[in-house]
C-alpha cells in the first residue's frame, strides 16, 4: 500500500471520557476509492470513531491524517472544508427548511455567500445564489428527490430523509464520505436499493466511502474491507469473507446464528 493510495489514516487514536476508554489505540488505513465498513456491537465505539475523524472530538492520543494532512486539531467545519462529509445515526436534517434549502446549506462551504452580498438583487451575490440553487437542484435530481424540492424536509418519508442527508453531505463536495448506519430502519428492499445507491455515488462523485452498519447483508454485500470494534478495541479487520470466518468476530458480534451458519 503506497502513501498515495491512502485516503484516511488514523494512528493510535485513543479517546477517553474521564475513566472510560471509548476507543483504544485505533489505527486504520482506508484506500482511496474503496467502500469500507466499521462494525461492532452496540457501544463498541463506532460513532466515537466517526466523531474523532470529523473533528467533533479531539482524540486524547493519536492522530488522524487525511490525504497526508493532519486533522487532529481541526474543528468539524474545518474537517468538512478539507473534504470529509458525514451523516448522522439519528437523522439530523434542518427540519424547518425545505428539501432544496437543506442541500443549499450544504453548498455554503464551497460557495460561501457573504452577508454583504445579500441585499442587492443583482451582482455577485445574486449570481452566487443562482449558482448554489442550481447545484443543489442537480444534486437532488441525482438522488431522485427533485420532485420534492419545495417540501418541508421533516415531512419526507424515512428513506427519502436518509437520501436527502446524503445529498446534503455531497453538496459539500467531499472526497471522503462517512455514513453512520445509513440502512437503520430500512426494510430489505430499501437497503438493497441503498447499497446500489452507495456504489453509484462512489462512482459518480469519485468518493471513498466508510460506513457503520448493523445490517450484515448490507455490510457484507457492499464493503471491500471491514474493521471490527469491540469495547473500543479493534479485534479484527479484513475482507468480508475473512471477517465472517473470524472466531473472535463471531464471538463478539455475529453470535450463535453465524456460528450455526458457518
Amino acid at each position: 500500500m503506497t502513501e498515495r493510495e491512502t485516503a484516511l489514516e488514523t494512528q493510535g487514536v485513543t479517546m477517553r471520557f474521564g475513566g472510560l476508554t471509548a476507543l483504544h489505540d485505533f489505527s486504520i488505513r482506508v484506500h482511496r476509492g474503496s467502500i469500507v465498513g466499521l462494525i461492532g456491537p452496540n457501544g463498541a465505539g463506532k460513532t466515537t470513531c466517526f466523531n474523532v475523524m470529523t473533528g467533533f472530538y479531539r482524540p486524547t492520543e493519536g492522530k488522524v491524517l487525511f490525504e497526508g494532512r493532519d486533522l487532529t486539531a481541526k474543528g468539524p467545519h474545518e474537517v468538512c472544508r478539507e473534504g470529509i462529509a458525514r451523516t448522522f445515526q439519528n437523522i439530523r436534517l434542518f427540519s424547518n427548511e425545505t428539501v432544496l434549502q437543506n442541500v443549499m446549506i450544504g453548498c455554503h462551504v464551497r460557495t460561501p455567500l457573504n452577508w454583504w452580498e445579500t441585499p442587492l438583487p443583482f451582482g455577485v451575490g445574486a449570481k452566487k445564489e443562482k449558482e448554489i440553487r442550481e447545484k443543489a437542484y442537480h444534486l437532488l435530481e441525482e438522488v431522485e428527490l427533485a420532485h420534492l424540492a419545495d417540501e418541508c424536509a421533516a415531512s419526507l418519508p424515512y428513506g427519502a430523509q436518509r437520501r436527502l442527508e446524503i445529498a446534503r453531505a455531497l453538496a459539500t463536495e467531499p472526497r471522503f464520505l462517512l455514513l453512520d448506519e445509513p440502512a437503520a430502519g430500512m426494510n430489505p428492499q430499501e437497503s438493497q436499493k441503498l447499497m446500489a445507491f452507495i456504489r453509484h455515488i462512489r462512482e459518480r462523485f469519485n468518493l471513498t466511502v466508510m460506513f457503520i452498519e448493523h445490517d450484515m447483508k448490507v455490510v457484507m454485500g457492499v464493503c471491500e474491507y471491514i474493521w471490527v470494534l469491540d469495547y473500543g478495541v479493534l479485534i479484527a479487520e479484513g475482507a468480508p469473507k475473512e471477517i465472517q470466518a473470524d472466531p473472535r468476530v463471531i464471538e463478539a458480534y455475529l453470535g450463535e446464528e453465524a456460528v450455526a451458519d458457518a
Binding site: 467545519h77 448522522f88 443549499m104 446549506i105 450544504g106 455554503h108 445579500t118 446534503r168
Partner: peptide, 24 residues
C-alpha cells in the same frame, strides 16, 4: 438568501450545521 438558510440551519441543528462545514 443562502446566508439566511445557514443561519436557520444553525438554529435548527447546530451539530449538523458544523458537520456541513459552517463556521457556526
Amino acid at each position: 438568501s443562502n446566508f439566511g438558510n445557514v443561519l436557520k440551519a444553525i438554529r435548527d441543528d447546530e451539530t449538523a450545521a458544523r458537520a456541513m462545514g459552517i463556521d457556526v
